[in-house]
Design a binder for these strands. Structure first.
Lengths: 207, 207, 207, 207
DNA sequence: CATGAATGAGACTTCATTCAT
DNA sequence: GATGAATGAAGTCTCATTCAT
């Protein structure tokens, strides 16, 4: 409520935005704190007021990134109740989100790589695994719904959910790599169809 | 006249193996040259005799990694002519390869992230994109074969190939992340089935 | 808002002084940055704040050295108008300057050697040649003045100027080498006489 | 007498020549032993057979350089008995020698700088000072001869000798620096005249 | 005897982090 | 609170020198 707190939060965002823009250009492994500070128009000392270490800045960025993604998808899905539509919408919303910001989009794979555990026990982004688990869970519930409504062919919903998300990640990777290209969200629809053909009862998919 | 004779190629391999083992523990962004040297049982200077820079060492490792993968898959596919079997074998061979060396397996995502272009124009692993393109091409040719033999439902083979590889990458990512687990190659078969259901003519897949 | 206030220029000088004192002991080819840092009572990092590389530190020292020399000579010559006196004063001022700081004085020959061009096209101290050219020009103008005033025998003023400076450099070299010694500025006067005997009209030199 | 010894001496020369050619390009402070080895067409180990350290190689080169210079001047002076001619010949021979090999010629100033004592007590080329002292001595004897023959005006022969050599060194430095240029040995004659005007009895110089 | 592969001490330079102002 | 000057730990890379063959 106090203006102080609002300012703090705003400056934090400002720094995070700056960081994300730097990450887009240099990845999360080859940037300097001073670059972020300059991009955010704050001093190095101020940066450390908000993020006590380089790692925490990266983690903060990842959180911002994921929360944005969640917001976007949640918005797109609000009001959608049909399981088939939910899956389709998830796919198209994900495409939309990534295509919104190509530069930032490349950063996701740095985040992904940084989220993988072990490498000596430590992982930078410990939040990735639980977040991903939640996503799989959410999708699998949707599929279970669809199955019980007779829309989907009975299947292992966990495997199906995992496969759907895997396919999406894999495709985004190929996009980032430049081996495939996509000019519009239309691509998502073709993928959806092919994908859903595998899990859904075709009679429902292609009426 | 006759200087010390050494098998340069063998020592190079030895260093690369050591590097790979270090990468497995620490990733490709947080290791020190001295660690590799120690792991390879050579002096720091020797390391630089074989790899003039840290980056070139990483690139060398990536090349070794990819060439091994190619060898493994090529071996597994030798003698296989049926398009459906080829796809199935590609999937199972890929699973096999990754499961062979869990530690190394985590490194792949560092390589993947490092292979994505732009980030200021430069990319560490410039070879990844052409390699990936070749793989898509290879799979798409197999699919075209299958289609012309009436084994697969007519489809855009490039999209199908891309999707198959995307799914595999995505699943391996989830494995590395720990959100799914796989104890044997059996998992591959379930994926194969689901996947092929999407692209193949079902009458052929489930006779 | 108000960051630490430091006199950057003063600290720069402080570092340069320290560097010069180190150079006097070790020359410009066999010193370590850490030595300069310690001598200047700053951290190694601070050194690099002010001089981005070893070479730039050397260049900075050379500039300081030359600007000091110029100041000294300029001061000594202020008010002197007679061409003969100017030459004499130049010589004595130069002696004075060098004898002021024996240690630093030895460094000059490292600077001189480092200022010679080519050696693969690059030269560390690119400023030396233009500075030297200016000095020759200045002396030659004085000589021309002297000639037109009938004080000097007509002569090629460029050759004469070059010779005077050459003689001085050569003598200082011998001093540094230790093959001649000089206890006072008196030596300069004897040299002056001999030298001027060669270029001046004797009737004017020894009235 | 044994061919062994001849071979040894020949290879030593070969290495020294190679070193000199490298020095001409890079100076004596910025070369690598491997460069010399390659230029001399020998292995690095062989290099160390002949010169147990980098410093000793530099010293060896300097010795070769100086002995060549001495040979050249001695040859030119053989048969010359007149003191005035001796001085003139010394000057012209020195010019000749330097102009013979412009590249190597630049190296001399590295040698000169490296020959200056103190810098922490140690000097790389300890031979320079005694050599230079000998040269001054030689010239001063010639001048004394000239004086006693009534050819030169009575003068402090040490100072005169020192001045003559200083002037020569200073001029060569200017040549190396590029602030003066000289296309032929003629330049030497003009310098000789001006110089001798200062020390000699003019009635003898310009008959 | 010649060679060049191997080595590791050592030097430059970077940059995350601190903290006086 | 904000700043950026100061710092030194740490890491890459070089290269003189050694020595097995």
């Amino acid at each position: 409520m106090t203006p102080r707190i609002v300012d703090k939060e705003a400056k934090r965002k400002q720094i995070l935005e700056a960081a994300l823009s730097v990450f887009a250009r240099k990845g999360i492994h080859d940037f300097r704190m001073i670059e972020i500070a300059k991009a955010a128009n704050v001093g190095k000392g101020t940066l450390y007021e908000y993020f006590p270490s380089k790692d925490e800045l990266i983690v903060g960025c990842f959180s911002l990134f994921m929360s944005r993604f969640n917001h976007h998808v949640t918005n797109q899905l609000s009001g959608v109740t049909d399981p088939v539509e939910k899956i389709k919408k998830l796919i198209s919303a994900t495409f939309e989100f990534y295509l919104t910001d190509r530069a930032l989009f490349d950063t996701i794979f740095d985040f992904y790589a940084a989220g993988i555990p072990h490498r000596d026990g430590k992982s930078l982004l410990t939040e990735l695994t639980p977040m991903y688990t939640d996503m799989i869970e959410w999708v699998s519930v949707v599929i279970d719904d669809g199955v019980s409504q007779g829309l989907f062919r009975p299947t292992d919903s966990k495997v199906a959910a995992s496969s759907i998300l895997a396919l999406l990640d894999g495709l985004f990777f190929q996009l980032a790599l430049g081996v495939i290209s996509v000019d519009s969200v239309d691509y998502a629809n073709r993928i959806s169809s092919n994908l859903l053909n595998g899990f859904l009862d075709r009679t429902n998919v292609n009426p």
